[in-house]
Design a binder for these strands. Structure first.
Lengths: 131, 131
DNA sequence: CTAGGTGCTAGACCGAGGTCTAGGTCAACC
DNA sequence: GGTTGACCTAGACCTCGGTCTAGCACCTAG
């Protein structure tokens, strides 16, 4: 648990998000509590913030909408007592991710078949016509 | 290979797309050649069209953009001689899907950890604080 | 004859998630 | 003292993928 602090540019580099997007996420309430500011009004991110944002990126990568992340952030920011809700939210998302994986595997099969069929087609010199 | 024909409503039912979306897809060039029309200008889809659209749905489900599907459709519609290109396109998409699967698994791990950690937390009566 | 069902076009509209611009503050360096 | 670079806000803008509306045509059943 480092207590290092980071400027927005540094956070952008570390999370892979643009500074624009970081500010957007903040406005959208993804940040579980206010971001601290230095004496000039500049954002000061903690190591914890950076870690959280890294997780947000992963949530986004699996299609969790900003509003849902914001909801989770709100619960986390609220502190004790709502852990059951957070768990529920996470479980729901996990289920959606699992469903998504199913669908993707389904499609992957189609693609694999098509790729194989074109490979055969090309190797054999135009036998049959895939699609 | 049935040679049945389908109205747009029937196709919507079979593919799970709305009729609006079907028309949009056509405009966007997803259909590998013109859709036939009956004497009143109504679209007449072949069984092949329906199958193709079903595949389009799967491509979409894995994040293939409409423009890429359109590109593939164009190649298919063009006929012989570009099979290598189609294969390349499919391989590229497969790679993206595989990458996507990696990222999703990565995120899934995070979620599983968090779920487990909250389950422990709740079972033990607030020991430690996950997030 | 009328109503209901299905279809047509052109084009407006929408939500999500970013991305960018204008105009400004501040600190550090040459 | 000027320039550069990092940051600020408010708000416009953009893409993507749909979704919906208006206004019309046609067919069929009651």
């Amino acid at each position: 648990m480092t207590d290092r602090e980071y400027g927005i540019g540094e956070v952008a580099r570390r999370t892979g998000l643009s500074v624009h997007t970081l500010r957007l996420y903040e406005r959208a309430g993804l940040l579980a509590g206010e971001v601290r500011r230095d004496s000039h009004g500049r954002r000061v991110y903690t190591a914890w913030d950076v870690e959280w944002l890294t997780n947000c990126v992963k949530f986004r990568a699996t299609g969790m909408p900003l509003t849902t992340i914001a909801e989770l952030a709100r619960l986390v920011g609220e502190g004790n007592g709502n852990e059951a809700k957070r768990l529920e939210l996470l479980r729901e998302h996990r289920q959606r991710v699992l469903d998504q994986l199913d669908r993707i595997h389904d499609c992957l099969e189609l693609i694999n078949n098509k790729v194989a069929s074109y490979e055969r087609h090309l190797a054999a010199g135009a036998t049959g016509n895939p699609w």
